[in-house]
Amino acid sequence: MVENKIPTSYNEALKILATGSYQVLNGGTDLMVRYRGWSETRVKFKKNMLHIHNLDELNYITSKDEYIHIGATTTHETILHHPLIPEIMKKCLRVFASPAIRNMGTLVGNIGNASPAGDAVLIAYLLEARLVVESLRHQREVPIEDFIKGPGSIALAPDEIIKEIYFKKLNFNATYFTKVGGRQSDAISKVMFAAGYRLDADKIVDIRIAIGAVSPTIIKDKTIEKSIKGYTLKNLSNQKSMILSQYAAHINPIDDQRSNKHYRKKVALNLLEAFLNDIITRS
């Protein structure tokens, strides 16, 4: 039988984790579904569970210098309505799941589950977020793309917890977010696309592109982004098909009960092309 503990403080949580035999349960919106059993029976968790959702110490959104920090137990709904949060995250959260799921689920929890179709995870990639991971042994920081190794697979030791996520405030001319799900809301994504750019006169000084649900982890390629920086709009127009083919090489979706790989790939590239066209025609 698995054990369950409800810590009364963050420090107590770290101590329990230090035993190495507990898994963190945050909002529960993923794990409660994955391990559900017959109604009226206990959820079939495979490990001892640490219920941290009520730890108010980790429920915060703060700003320091140019950075915004979000604590582990902060729910999507809290994030959505907070004045410090960038519009691109709000665009995503407005159409994310449903009000109830947003009230339960947390951004850090979604990252901990490392779903390639996690909507807010896509935005965390776009924001080039970093995670603060802590245990009684140490505290470390890790960029999100190094933390998420594959679907459901993360770089977290058994005694560690994700304490918070933080990212730098954006300075873009425009940001883009498209979620393609089976319906207008309350849906798991088939394809997700997020992007932003900053222009100086007709020169691109910053650009970021993230594409989700089309490969084992979210696609965000800093090398391609770097190569685009410095382009004039004319360069961008000339290089458009080249850029599309660079991204196409990364896009490797699957067929499943929600969609098929041809559709996912085509739509991802359509959205990327529409984004690039939008920059080009903006001049």
Binding site: G182, R183, I188
Partner: peptide, 16 residues
């Protein structure tokens, strides 16, 4: 059956 829950079998929501 491939769509065996209400997440995967899509019926309209109020928004649809």
């Amino acid at each position: 059956i491939m769509q065996k829950n209400m997440t995967d079998y899509i019926i309209p929501t109020a928004a649809d």
